[in-house]
Simulated assay, not measured.
Amino acid sequence: MGTVTALYRYPVKSMLGENVPSVTITERGVSGDRVHAVLDGSGAVGSAKHPGKWGDVLRCRSRLDDAGVVRVVLPDGTALSVEDPELSVRLCTLLGREVFVCAVVPEHVRLERAVPDYEGGVPAVLRKSAFVDETGERVTTGSVAPGTFFDFGRVHLVTTAALDRMRTVYPGGDFDARRFRPNLVVDAGDAPGFPEDAWLGARLRAGAALFRVVVPTPRCVIPTLGHDELPPDPGIMRAVARDHRIPVFDLGRLSCLGVYLDVLEAGTVRVGDVITLQESV
């Protein structure tokens, strides 16, 4: 059905991640993925979904070193371990307020999301409850997946077909997969458009790991932001909103690209591994 063309993990939530040749899949998801986050004293977890407050986190890069220690490279090139107290000091300076790096998910942590002005960026019910915060942005608040720093799904997959489709819709946009922060990028062969839409509920085998395809991935503002050398482009998500708004649970028709996966069987996935699809059982 296809092959894995790229693998990514993001050891610190909302920081740039690392492109790796293989990943270990556990029941939790990709080993080493979103194991830390930046938090502030209000209980907000650092997410570039609210760029006015947390956008500078995306200017940092996180990676695992050979000993399995998470290291963060700051915008000025300084590399520090997450265990180094200096890292929180530097992040406070970067963000202009008191923050800290944490590996333990607080009980009442919350996630803030900016509300875009196009339809499909957030569920209508959340748009109605949005408010303007101290940054001047309209935001909504919600929770993370229980016991984790994930927004919802443990593993995120994007197909090259979906990215190719969006390039035809918005030729001026750079639909680099990194904008969408996937764990797996899959080449589904000659399948047109958004082949992953037809996979919902099915089981997907990648290397030694087995997943269930759970739900389309609703997109926030993050793909429109600058990622490393990729410049900001607000047209990216406007194009997705025009071309691919589809039902997500009972939340209405949302702008989606990619799918979230649950882990059924742990195992190693490598670039080049064949992807096979099994009907839902």
Rank of each mutant, 00 (worst) to 15 (best):
F100R: 13
R71H: 12
A114M: 13
V125F: 11
P182K: 13
G77T: 08
S255Q: 05
M1G: 13
L184Q: 07
V101C: 00
R205T: 10
M166C: 12
D273P: 01
R154K: 15
A202V: 02
D233H: 06
H50A: 15
T160K: 06
P51K: 12
V104D: 15
A188G: 04
R238Q: 14
V82N: 01
V269C: 09
V125E: 14
C92P: 11
V35D: 13
G147E: 03
F194T: 01
T5D: 10
V4W: 12
V274A: 10
E229D: 13
V23G: 11
G121S: 02
V263T: 05
V269H: 10
V274N: 00
C220K: 05
F152K: 13
G207R: 06
V23I: 15
S280A: 15
D197S: 01
I275H: 10
S81D: 10
D164H: 14
V240W: 09
F249H: 12
M166W: 11
A6G: 10
D33N: 07
P216V: 04
R59V: 02
P232F: 03
G77K: 06
R181L: 02
E265L: 06
V186D: 00
H50N: 02
A177W: 12
A161G: 08
P11R: 15
E112R: 12
Y170Q: 08
V144H: 14
P75V: 14
C220S: 13
S143E: 14
D76Q: 05
E119R: 14
V45A: 14
S22G: 07
R219D: 00
R270I: 00
V70Q: 01
V248W: 08
V240D: 10
F194G: 03
A177M: 10
G136P: 11
V122W: 01
A37L: 04
L157N: 14
S47L: 03
F152R: 15
A48D: 10
G189C: 09
I246F: 04
V20D: 06
T26A: 03
R212T: 15
V269A: 08
C256R: 01
L184V: 15
G252K: 13
R253H: 11
R138M: 05
F175V: 06
F180I: 00
V215N: 12
D233F: 04
Y170N: 14
